[in-house]
Design a protein around this nucleic acid. Structure first.
Length: 271
DNA sequence: ATGGCTACCATAGGTAGA
């Protein structure tokens, strides 16, 4: 990583314990300064904090048995927690949101509900969760701090973000209600960093385990990193670490990342 | 329309993922 650059990544590990070797190999090779993880699928006591510290990272995590679970890692630092629940529903006990400050930015790490099958209660929960996110995102956007929202949004924003929408038309990830909410979020002013950096390129972050979809590059773009007005001008590059998806016994998601100029550009007043 | 695969768990099929 070049000096003066900050790298932020999101990675749905699909099981932190079974994916630990991949996670450590990825941290070692790509060295993100901040990493958001989703689908830990482990209780708090099952989080491998010792291995992660040994790799040079501080961490916050929020586990849950069997499903969900999110974490924020910071290279050479301890992220400072600002939230561990998404506001708006005290009865919601699913571990899907964690927010912290690290390396001078605020990052919201999220695992938006999948929502299948739809229609049904899971889809209703997805839409309600999305509405809560939109509401909270407004305050983050307006906070005056550099903010990123990073995670598995479980939304394919457009038909350009999927190899072929035909067989997914009834899937919760492509429903108009899901897509409208993603657009509503962006309308607050957030920049979709990967799409911003690659406007004309097919980019995927997820390939399911079926029918050799990885081998055929039949993927979906559902892991996103959104930047607010303070952070977007610092965007340098964005991409997907596809090599991680190609490892044996890989998660069905690949790490998705952005790089920033480390600090806001200061200009000297002209004489 | 279903199933194809993977990870989790009251470790055997059920549930969930997307």
């Amino acid at each position: 990583m070049a000096r003066g650059t900050l790298k932020l990544a999101t990675y749905n590990v699909n099981g932190i314990r079974s994916r630990l070797p991949h996670l450590l190999a990825w941290l070692d090779k790509e060295a993100p300064d901040i990493a958001c993880l989703q689908e830990l699928k482990a209780i708090d006591e099952g989080f491998p904090i010792g291995d992660i510290r040994a790799a040079g990272y501080g961490a916050l995590w929020k586990g849950q048995r069997s499903w969900n679970g999110v974490a924020i890692l910071a290279k050479g630092a301890d992220p400072v927690e600002s939230r561990r629940v998404l506001p708006g529903d005290r009865a919601d006990d699913q571990s899907r949101y964690l927010e912290a400050a690290a390396h001078g930015i605020i990052v919201g790490c999220l695992y938006l509900p999948n929502g299948n099958p739809q229609p049904g209660p899971k889809f209703d929960y997805k839409l309600k969760w999305f509405d809560r996110l939109i509401r909270h995102a407004r305050s983050l956007f307006d906070s005056g701090h550099p903010v990123a929202l990073a995670g598995d949004f479980n939304v394919v924003p457009t038909d350009f973000d999927i190899y072929n929408p035909r067989s997914w038309l009834k899937d919760a990830l492509l429903q108009p209600e899901s897509r409208e909410r993603y657009q509503k979020l962006l309308a607050q002013g957030w920049i979709d960093a990967v799409r911003e950096s690659h406007p004309d390129e097919r980019i995927y972050t997820f390939w399911d385990y079926f029918r050799q979809h990885w081998q055929r590059d039949s993927g979906l773009r559902i892991d996103h990193i959104l930047l607010n007005r303070q952070l977007a001008p610092r965007l340098k590059q964005a991409g997907v670490d596809r090599w991680v998806r190609g490892l044996p016994k890989a998660s069905d998601h690949a790490p998705t990342w952005v790089t920033f100029k480390a600090e806001a550009v200061r200009r000297r007043a002209k004489q």
